[in-house]
Write a protein that binds this DNA or RNA. Sequence first.
DNA 1: GCGGTGTACGAAATA
DNA 2: CGTACACCGC
Length: 771
Amino acid sequence: MALDLSLLNPAQRDAVMHVDGPLLVIAGPGSGKTRVITWRVAWMIEQGVSPWSILAVTFTNKAAQEMRERIARVAPSDGARICTFHSFGAMFLRAEHERLGLARDFSIYDESDQLGLIKKACSELGIDKDTLAPREIRHAIGEAKNGGITPHHYLSNARSWREEKIAAAYAKYQDLLLGNNACDFDDLLLRPVAALRDNSELRERYANRYRYILVDEYQDTNAVQYELTRLLGGTHRNVCVTGDPDQSIYSWRGADITNILNFEKDFSDTRVVVLGHNYRSTKNIVSAADALVRNNVSRKSKDLFTDNEAGHNIRVVMTQNETHEGIRVAAIVKDLIEHEGIDYNDVAVFYRTNAQSRALEQGLREAGIPYVIVGSVEFYKRKEIVDVLAWLRLLINPTDEQAFGRAIANPGCGVGEASAAKIVAAARARGINLIDAVRDPDVLALLRGKPAAGARAFGEIVGKLAAMPKTPATGIVSQVISLTGYESWIMRDDPARGLERVENVQELVSDAAIFDETNRGATLADYVERVSLINDIDKYDPGKRAVSLMTLHSAKGLEFPAVFIAGVEDGSIPHMRSITGDSGNLEEERRLLYVGITRAKRFLHLTLARHREQFGQSTRNSPSRFLRELPQELLAQEDHTGGLFGVGLGGVKPAAVESLPFDDDVEPASDDDGAAAPDPWEGADTGPGLRLLRKEPLPAEPPRPEIVPGGMVNADLNVGDRVRHQMFGVGKILSFTPHAGGTRARILFTGWGEKNMALEYARLERIEPAR
DNA sequence: GCGGTGTACGAAATA
DNA sequence: CGTACACCGC
Ligand SMILES: Nc1ncnc2c1ncn2[C@@H]1O[C@H](COP(=O)(O)OP(=O)(O)OP(=O)(O)O)[C@@H](O)[C@H]1O
């Protein structure tokens, strides 16, 4: 148990043994930062610091989990809080919910919940979603929240009609969140920060509780996380932050690299430790990474070196398309396993976007290579899972209208959007929650026919579920599935993929079971909270021998003996949006590749596909510009395209490829560009020829038909008339559209937004225009 | 009003 | 290609 500090180098030891006062550890990749953090915590505990007073914040749940385990192995660390910023926020809000006017079991809204709420806000405010896209509003709100700007603030700074609308939507959105007893991800940080800032008693209490604070990946903290760190640690100043400006890859999420650059100013007398000795990778890999990142101009130069052997060259594998890329990767994996003593576990494949995993998976699968997707296209985001979770969320927080809407629609029970809205409105009006509302005879009396029967059935089920014990979580989860008949509904609703989706639902039950197992005494609320904060699922079989697939972003902090980076092409790495758009940040793309490269211990492969299917059509790609920045003598190029990529990268002719195990492939003859010739199509489409073909601006749209065709009962309605609707109240007619068997009217209702309805079904009542 | 169906549009990364 | 949503029939 005792720590053997001789296993650390002098710089690492300095950092580990620094207990009181601010500490900044700038750690190059593979320099033992993780080791330093875990040992430092262990050291503090050994020095008599109570684990209870330690707060270690990591960036991902995976990192938190790993750190918890590693610390537990070297010190009795029970009681230390090791978590992400967001779970700290959630914990804080739960503990302080009362003083913050929040229900204890508030819901945590993810992006799609947010979008739903924003749409609702727009609709209630009469904001047309074609003029102002809900996504844009969400983006604006996110940005505002990251900068700590309140709706009120936003409005007073609004410079345009557009910004005023966004301000209104922001305010409404915030209201709706409140009404639903919900927080979005940003609120999980913002609300604690506001509370700690405004309440010194609270701040002192928390600062006293957490007398030692560690923040990992500090280069990727945003303004709010920075504020939180200062609020908690500003007084006692026992704050240790670790990070590497060269590995900052989250600026798109508001991460601000100046947080780490200014740490020394924020905390005077900071002890600074720089770790530059890489213990992870071969010389060739370290040199390549170092050469690459030196191309970043806005960067403080920093040394990265290693005593490890030179190792193998970096293989640059050029393939024809993404399928071919998958096949080649699989072939090399097989070769590594057969000839290099590498195990499946030792191999990782990284890519820029989740969508790229498909072809790689296929290649591995067809070669019989086991793999796992780490942080996959999030399990908890699949429709069938979201549906079941909506039921769970509703049971925990019966004021959650988003959850209610989803639960009542899935499985479909004959209650549509409008009837659901009616129940919601009735609940609001009566000040009761949604579960009570849907079981209230007076509320049910507002509906008739199919919706009424459906709502009654729904109410019975949800009532039964609400009465059940909420511990353990698994019981309720399976009850939801069986009582709602969810699985048979899926099979009926989507026969093609029904089976797969049923399996996913089953997997959710196992996930809950694992949760119950590892968190004895935890409730359904705990499970729902965890699910809201984590988007990856506990796999059954963590020790499974398998190749890991993940995005470059989720690779941060990990290491593997053999690494593949797929799609090293312009447009992918760097991503298209960073090349074209002005918001793009090429340096961050370079850092992303840097992070990927430095995950490799011994074998590194960069693969390229000449063609890639995107949106159903083929694109042609050039090698990543970053390849030219790597020392060419460290690269071993392998062309499996028959010269489709043209001349070698960086102007160096491809070296005669060493005899490779895969040369017996039949390569289709190159049917297009020859080796040195420029692509015949490239550059041409920007020529003047095409510009002449540009379409003339479209003629202005013909005026909409103003008058109702067809002799309906309501035929005397006109655009602009005010009408009353049974459910939506008073509204104004915007337009009519003829359709088979009658007429539809687009009507703007106050408080409900725009609705499109068939006149023969909507029992509209005309109100005399007030003249 | 509900639910089925056709189509227009769209995906960078994560808590 | 896959999905979200607008549209239309009942
Ligand atoms: N003093 C040391 N002597 C030998 N090996 C070490 C030493 N310190 C760390 N290592 C090894 O170096 C590797 C990288 O360490 P670690 O994962 O802590 O790096 P890191 O700085 O967290 O990397 P990154 O910032 O890239 O995530 C690990 O395999 C670790 O065991």
